[in-house]
Simulated scan of single mutants.
Amino acid sequence: MNEKYYWMEENNGVVTVGLTDEGKDELGNITFVSLPKVGDSLTKTDVLINVEADKAVSDIPSPVEGTVVAINEDAANDPSILNNSDKNSTWVAKIEK
């Protein structure tokens, strides 16, 4: 998936990653998401999340290399919140570089 489909914000070496509105529009209504586990080590070639949506099923690679330090538990329990535009509720993972 192209980098334009996710956003990243870095704070003190921890990168928060989420899907952009453009990415969500291409996927359609998100109905399932598989998130990494806290403690997982990721490279840029590793799958960060798997998303099932109305228009597509996609494996989205990690945009950064590092260790997962947090996941959006709300999104894990209710993937439909990822359909919103609010970054405070629609981030998927925090990765420490």
Rank of each mutant, 00 (worst) to 15 (best):
V51A: 14
L19H: 04
L35G: 11
T16V: 12
N83R: 01
Y5K: 05
S89T: 09
S58M: 02
V17Y: 00
N12F: 05
M1A: 03
V92R: 08
N84D: 01
V33H: 10
E52A: 15
Y5Q: 04
A75H: 07
V38H: 09
P61R: 06
D78T: 15
S58F: 04
D59A: 06
G13L: 08
N11M: 10
E73V: 15
P36A: 00
K94D: 01
D46M: 01
E96R: 02
D54K: 14
S58D: 01
Y5S: 09
T31P: 07
T20A: 14
E65P: 12
D25P: 15
P61G: 08
K24P: 06
T67G: 08
P61L: 06
N12A: 13
D54N: 04
V14S: 13
N88G: 11
N83Y: 01
V17P: 06
W91R: 03
L19E: 03
K55L: 02
T90P: 13
N77C: 07
S62M: 09
L48Y: 11
A53K: 02
D54W: 06
K37N: 14
E73A: 15
T31W: 08
A53F: 08
S80G: 07
V14P: 06
S85L: 13
D40G: 01
D46Y: 01
T45A: 00
E73R: 14
D40C: 00
W7Y: 14
N29Y: 07
S41R: 10
L42F: 03
S41L: 02
N11T: 15
M8C: 08
D78L: 12
D25I: 14
A70S: 00
K4E: 13
I60H: 08
G23T: 00
I30Q: 01
D54E: 15
V33P: 05
T67W: 05
A93L: 03
V47M: 06
T20C: 14
K55G: 07
I95K: 03
D74N: 11
V51I: 09
T20W: 14
G66A: 04
D21C: 14
N2S: 11
E73K: 12
T43Q: 08
E73N: 09
G28C: 08
L35W: 04
V33C: 13
T67N: 12
V57G: 04
I60R: 11
D40A: 02
V15A: 05
A56N: 04
N72M: 10
V15D: 01
M1L: 07
L42Q: 02
K24C: 10
E96L: 04
F32N: 10
S58C: 06
K37M: 12
D59P: 02
L48C: 07
V47I: 00
V64H: 04
K97N: 02
E96N: 07
D40N: 05
